[in-house]
């Protein structure tokens, strides 16, 4: 299923899951066991978090031999940046450009 935006924000709305994403960002392609190391979470909790992250398409898994590796999928984050940051940033920039134009117009006049 293509991940929907609600699943995505729900997945991001948890410090444990964000931590897992950070861990994958630092070292992509880890097994469940590797992800559990040095974490203050039970294996079951990590498994549950990973399931939600997968559902949101933030994490994808690949089997390599007998190992299931977890990878960070950059797509949804990129979409958020485009949809929720880029758009508003552009608006802010155009407001600044407008302000600049008006201020410069004032000095001219």
């Amino acid at each position: 299923m293509p991940a929907n935006v609600d699943n995505l924000f729900k997945a991001l709305a948890d410090p444990g899951r964000r931590l897992l994403l950070d861990r994958l960002y630092a070292d992509n392609g880890q097994t469940l066991g590797q992800l559990c190391e040095h974490l203050d979470m039970t294996r079951q909790a990590v498994t549950k978090h990973l399931k939600l992250l997968e559902k949101a398409n933030l994490v994808v898994t690949l089997w390599r031999g007998r190992e299931k590796l977890h990878y960070l999928n950059p797509v949804p984050i990129h979409d958020i940046a485009e949809r929720w940051i880029g758009k508003f940033e552009r608006r802010r920039l155009s407001v600044l450009a407008e302000l600049k134009k008006r201020l410069e117009g004032e000095t001219d006049g």
Binding site: P2, A3, D27, N28, G29, N57, V60, L62, L69, Y71, N73, P74, V75
Partner: peptide, 12 residues
């Protein structure tokens, strides 16, 4: 890890 890998999944 003995390899480097980039994975990307998108729905079009």
């Amino acid at each position: 890890m003995a390899e480097s890998r980039f994975v990307y999944v998108t729905y079009i």
